[in-house]
Amino acid sequence: MSNEKKETKHKLRLATLVTQAGRAPFDHFGFVNPPIYRGSTVLFPTVAALEGLRQPYTYGTKGTPTTRALEQAWSEIAGAVDTVLTPSGLAAIGLALLTATHAGAHALIADSAYQPTRIFCDGLLKRFGVNVEYYDPLIGGGVATLMRPETTAVLVESPGSQSMEVQDVPAIAAAAHAHGACVIADNTWATPLLFPPHERGCDLAIEAGTKYLAGHADLLIGLVSANAKWAKRLRATFNAFGMGSSPDDASLALRGLRTMALRLREQERAALDIAQWLQDRPEVSRVLHPALPTHPGHELWKRDFNGASGVFSVILKDVSKKAVAAVVDGLELFGIGFSWGGYESLVLPFDCASYRTATRWAPEGPALRFSIGLEDVADLKSDLAAGLGRLKVS
């Protein structure tokens, strides 16, 4: 591809870029998708090439043309200098945190963070000598008051993957950078299509590609993208772990990438329709969806996001666990399970109270998280109406 064409591609809108990024058909005899390169050993033509590592690929853990295609595509889409692939979203979280911390460092973690993030921080990260502190996700620029001389990392997750708080990421980033700290974003809910993390001040951005990137509930993969300041250190940490990802998984993720913009747009439309409908149900106390004007973080969402994904939460009126089980167990189109972002709709009862430490989770009723898939909205509403109707007889 010529430099002129490369320059043109960078000016493309995101919906077009997801179909074009990471592709070089004429490097592969004209085939539009890169082939799957499986391998560990890579041969060198000469001793000089071996000693100087003067070729693009040197060993399987350092990448293949298949994994490199996904890394390059994601860097373009996220506005990053470099991206590395990991075997899962949680592996991406761990890699990013280990890149930005060291023994004796202090890390600030949003209290609304994904629970496995907390398990990693309270276990392995603390065992490695990092002092972990949780903060109110709504603190905004006030996070400056929590900074210490040894603070090296601030992790944001906006919105929170269950409780849906929208963070003032630019304000947090400004405060963190003033103290020399790295800002790490778990951007899985929005993806770079809906929230450009590096434009908003984040140094490292995590994506559980398992979810919207993969899109079909059949793949585990993570990505960490970095800006110019942190790209070299991220790549060095990645290389030290030998954390290679399967080229087969990278190929599936590339396939998912090509339709991600369309799927996100449809799932945004369907989820907002259902969220608005649920607001008027008598069994529902509140709907936690950032795109609804009733959401406390709606104005921040309008300012910083380009749209909403298909994930939101609902607070029911105060009913028993048995009643909630009657609603959920009888749903026909909503699977009960973790994750989100696939073609299928999911529901997950949750309670953050047991692991919040900086804030208090005490809603007026039980909570459900929904991930809206690609089913017909009328069918999903019919299934939910029948399920909520069971509250009256349970």
Rank of each mutant, 00 (worst) to 15 (best):
K302V: 15
D203A: 13
I372T: 06
D383Q: 03
T66F: 06
A275F: 03
P196K: 12
L391C: 07
D318N: 15
Q20C: 05
H216D: 15
R13F: 09
V18T: 14
A261D: 13
A271L: 04
D203F: 07
M243D: 08
A49F: 05
Y59C: 13
G222T: 05
T117Y: 01
P25Y: 05
N3K: 09
D383P: 06
S112C: 10
T357A: 09
P45C: 04
F128N: 04
L278S: 02
A325F: 12
V311I: 15
P197E: 00
L388Q: 12
L331H: 09
H106W: 09
F120Q: 00
I36F: 00
E283W: 03
R263F: 08
G60F: 02
V132M: 05
S345D: 03
H177W: 13
A100L: 09
S345W: 06
A253L: 07
K302H: 14
V224I: 11
I315D: 11
D122C: 02
H216L: 15
T16V: 14
S163V: 09
D168T: 06
G335D: 12
N3I: 11
A105H: 08
G129H: 02
S112F: 02
A205P: 09
E165S: 11
L213W: 00
A80H: 03
G256M: 11
Y59G: 08
G39C: 04
F312D: 00
A176E: 02
P25N: 04
L14Q: 08
A275Q: 02
L288M: 13
T99H: 05
G201Q: 01
D383H: 07
D379V: 06
A231N: 14
F338C: 06
L12P: 04
V154M: 00
T151R: 03
T67I: 07
A240T: 10
K302A: 15
G244H: 01
L146M: 07
A73F: 05
Y135F: 14
D351C: 06
K232N: 11
A253N: 00
S112T: 11
H28D: 14
E283H: 10
H216F: 15
M1A: 13
L146F: 03
N227T: 11
A15G: 09
C182F: 06
P192T: 05
F26K: 10
G297K: 01
D122R: 09
L108S: 02
H106P: 08
L368R: 04
D273H: 14
L252P: 01
S251V: 00
S251R: 12
